[in-house]
């Protein structure tokens, strides 16, 4: 009689300890890695080594090892080295480990609060978590630090669009175009008098073109809203061409043009010097 009782107690104890463990995030709690390379060398050498190693592992798709390398910098060498937090956060974001990524970005911001990349990249994680107010706060802060940042302005426009604030999104994108002056490049490229093969009036980054893509998506979203308003008012008597156009756009927003999957957001560079 005593034995079954002991077994039941043991089973309950096991269950009680297992349940909190099962409730935890799928990613295990990080264990400090063993960082034996360049032991005894100056900190800057070890830091450079592990940053290189981590980036090398990342390049070959070995995300866990990359995280270990950056963790070596943080745990073993310099707990205040912001680039290691930034790099680790980016890898964690790619692994959808958003909570730990947020922790790292927050720490990087504490260490280097004058660099917009920490705010911008944290804003991306908040967006991926659909915490749009927090994301907006971060993109706002990034723009406070550098109002000319196309990256932060694009990202804020995406969040505005996700909130249905199309006018605000459009204003941001138009501001981004104005800031870079990419519209002048476009005007030159569209000039009918322009000789074929002539180089653009200036070199430009592809990111500068991104606002046009987003404007297209937002105008499409706008169009879809209007089609749907029409279809709601007309019901089954609506024009079939509008029904068809609305269906096609809806399908587009389910796949290629969806704004909530993070693919339209831009990551900002982080430089140790700030």
């Amino acid at each position: 009689m005593k034995r079954p009782f002991i077994l039941i107690v043991a089973a309950l104890t096991l269950l009680a300890t297992a349940v909190p463990a099962l409730a935890q995030d799928a990613t295990p709690t990080p264990v400090p890695p063993i960082c034996l390379n360049y032991v005894g060398q100056p900190d800057d050498i070890r830091t450079s080594y592990y940053m290189g190693e981590g980036l090398g592992y990342y390049a070959s798709g070995e995300f866990s090892r990359a995280i270990n390398s950056f963790t070596c910098v943080i745990f073993e060498i310099d707990a205040n080295y912001a680039p290691a937090y930034m790099a680790r956060a980016l890898v964690l974001t790619q692994r959808s480990d958003y909570e730990r990524a947020l922790e790292d970005y927050t720490r990087a911001i504490q260490l280097n609060g004058t660099d917009l990349s920490g705010y911008n990249n944290r804003g991306i994680v908040y967006t991926l978590q659909r915490e749009y107010d927090e994301a907006l706060a971060d993109f706002n802060q990034a723009l406070e630090l550098d109002s000319r940042s196309v990256v932060a302005r694009n990202n804020r426009a995406v969040v505005y669009a996700l909130q249905g604030e199309y006018e605000l999104a459009i204003a941001d994108l138009q501001q981004a175009i104005e800031t870079t002056g990419i519209d002048a490049v476009l005007a030159d490229l569209l000039d009918p008098e322009r000789e074929e093969g002539t180089p653009p009036i200036r070199d430009y980054d592809l990111i500068e073109a991104q606002p046009y893509a987003l404007l297209g998506i937002i105008y499409s979203a706008f169009a879809l809203d209007n089609y749907q308003a029409y279809l709601r008012l007309t019901g089954s008597n609506g024009d079939f061409r509008i029904q068809s156009a609305a269906g096609a756009l809806e399908s587009r927003f389910t796949f290629d043009l969806r704004l909530d999957d993070g693919t339209w957001l831009l990551v900002a560079d982080f430089a140790p010097e700030g």
């Binding site: 450079s48 940053m51 290189g52 980036l55 990342y58 070959s60 680039p83 900002a268 560079d269 140790p272």
Partner: peptide
């Protein structure tokens, strides 16, 4: 640029950094 740029990190390209990159490739 290919490696550090992939993670949007700008870093000093000193010798230990490249050795770290090399060790990661060697491990694979």
């Amino acid at each position: 640029e290919r490696t550090a740029g992939a993670l949007s990190i700008r870093t000093d390209a000193v010798a230990p950094f490249f050795i770290g990159l090399g060790d990661a490739a060697f491990a694979d």
